[in-house]
Amino acid sequence: MSTLAQEFSKGIFKENPIFRLLLGMCPTLAVSITAINGFGMGVAALFVLLGSNLVIAALRNFIPSKVRIPAYILIIATFVTIVDMVLNAFTPDLHKALGIFIPLIVVNCIILGRAEAFARKNSVARSVIDALGMGVGFTLSLTILGIIRELFGKGSIFGVGVMGSAFEPMGILATAPGAFITLGIMLGFVNFMFKRLGIE
């Protein structure tokens, strides 16, 4: 049995959902245009993941295994809808920027994947730690992608201009091809670093 600290850190490094497991690619590519979008998406997913992992782990002995998937979907959908409404009410700009990708968290592989692979079989405490780790890993990855794309595609970080007025943004990074290129380069870089560090 791994320690809780390991449980937490695996989601950030060894089993990072984006760079290692390649889960949840759709929102990754779509919303990482700016750092704040990536961060917001990550936090939204973190919240849903936390909630669903917690509830599913708590109810793991009560839900018959034949109907577990519909039950999980119900639970996840509820949390997603809550996030959607809360974001809409309190951070409308972010809500507008993330758009359809918030409701789509429902089908994000990370959420259902963690429910099915982890929360179903582990205690509430471990599941919550797992959700935190995965969520932070997801948020971190999206934010990094967002920072890179925003820095070169718009010349700012978290909306603050940093490149000076002479900088002409690289438009392609704000488009879908730019997302693929950035993600691809990051994946290569992370794999390279892991190899260098001798992990796997």
Partner: peptide, 28 residues
């Protein structure tokens, strides 16, 4: 038991959502 479980979960979820909606809808 399956049907009942789903029903209960569904009901709780629905209730929860309506509460949240009640808070956020006017703000929105």
């Amino acid at each position: 038991r399956m049907a009942l479980t789903l029903l209960i979960i569904g009901a709780i979820c629905g209730g929860l959502l309506s509460v949240v909606n009640g808070i956020t809808a006017p703000i929105i």
